[in-house]
């Protein structure tokens, strides 16, 4: 898909993510906006999927390891046609809603793996990648992790074994926006250097602008050329990207816009007046 189209879709998904947090009265808009362009590139350009057949055995797998960013995933699934009829109001985090506070494969069509508890996506993705090799399938498994999430030791258990097993059908994006719940990643652990770390674990590593579709697409294409190693694409992102008052403002890690703030987001993302 052309970059301009992807940009247009990403703006729509961003608006939808903010809208579902606004309407639901709870959620994590900043992390969702940070991952928006990676998710858009995956669902509208990269993934081999069939929305009409979400259990297709040969489909590419996707895990949102930073599951709290799920509003952007729900928006992508909706725009990609996973829900018939299309969802108008997500009722995010509401009782009996299809759209849980964190992604649940039992509740939501198109979700390959439950997430939300940080640190698990790489190891689970490794399991999916191993399954592909064991069953002779050529699908890829894609994972998005946060940079703060990498503080979980289990990420490195997964990174270790994925490299040890030579899982070149596993591609992990690091949404490197520099923030976590309380403060910055640098403040928390001193060094936010996932590229060096994954390289040391024996991965193929690239570092790109996580809001540039050409770079995301090119990095995935390059990752697929790499043989014998899992791939890590470190994406430099802006937390809250696309909504002026949320960008690099960690108060929006979790938060709900007021009516006025929501109207401003609508104007900035969609050029519409509410």
């Amino acid at each position: 898909m052309e970059t301009k189209e992807l940009q247009e879709i990403a703006s729509l998904l961003r608006f939808e993510a903010v809208r579902m947090v606004y309407e639901g009265g709870d959620g994590h808009p900043g992390p969702a906006l940070s991952s928006a362009d990676i998710v858009t590139a995956l669902y509208f350009d990269i993934l081999k999927i069939d929305p009409a057949n979400p259990d297709w055995a040969d489909r590419d797998r996707f895990i949102l390891s930073k599951g709290h960013a799920c509003p952007i995933w729900y928006a992508a699934l909706n725009e990609r046609g996973y829900f018939q009829p299309k969802v108008e109001h997500f009722h995010l985090r509401q009782l009996h809603s299809e759209f849980q506070g964190h992604p649940s494969m039992k509740n939501t069509r198109g979700i390959d793996m439950t997430t939300g508890s940080l640190g698990n996506g790489i190891a689970i993705g490794a399991g999916m990648a191993i399954a592909a090799k064991a069953t002779g399938k050529d699908y890829y498994t894609y994972v998005i992790c946060g940079d703060g999430e990498l503080q979980e030791g289990l990420c490195w258990e997964g990174a270790n074994m994925a490299a040890g097993r030579g899982l070149d059908n596993l591609i992990v994006f690091i949404d490197k926006n520099g923030y976590q719940s309380y403060k910055t990643v640098d403040y928390t652990v001193g060094r936010n250097n996932p590229a060096e770390r994954f390289m040391a674990f024996g991965w193929d590593v690239q570092e790109i602008d996580g809001h540039n579709f050409d770079e995301i697409k090119a990095a995935v294409a390059a990752a697929k050329q790499n043989k014998g190693k899992p791939s890590c694409i470190v994406c430099n992102c802006v937390k809250g990207k696309g909504v002026s008052y949320m960008e690099n403002n960690n108060n929006w890690h979790k938060g709900v816009p007021t009516k006025e703030q929501f109207a401003l987001a609508a104007r900035e993302l969609r050029g519409i007046s509410l």
């Binding site: 190891a123 399991g127 399954a131 040890g164």
Partner: peptide
């Protein structure tokens, strides 16, 4: 050898790998 997966001394990883494999139809 192709049906044995070594995760190393990492039990959380082993359980997660099982989840990933089971989600793809295997019985780990």
């Amino acid at each position: 050898p192709n049906r044995y997966v070594e995760c190393g001394i990492a039990e959380q990883c082993a359980v997660d790998v099982a989840a990933g494999m089971a989600s793809c139809g295997l019985i780990p």
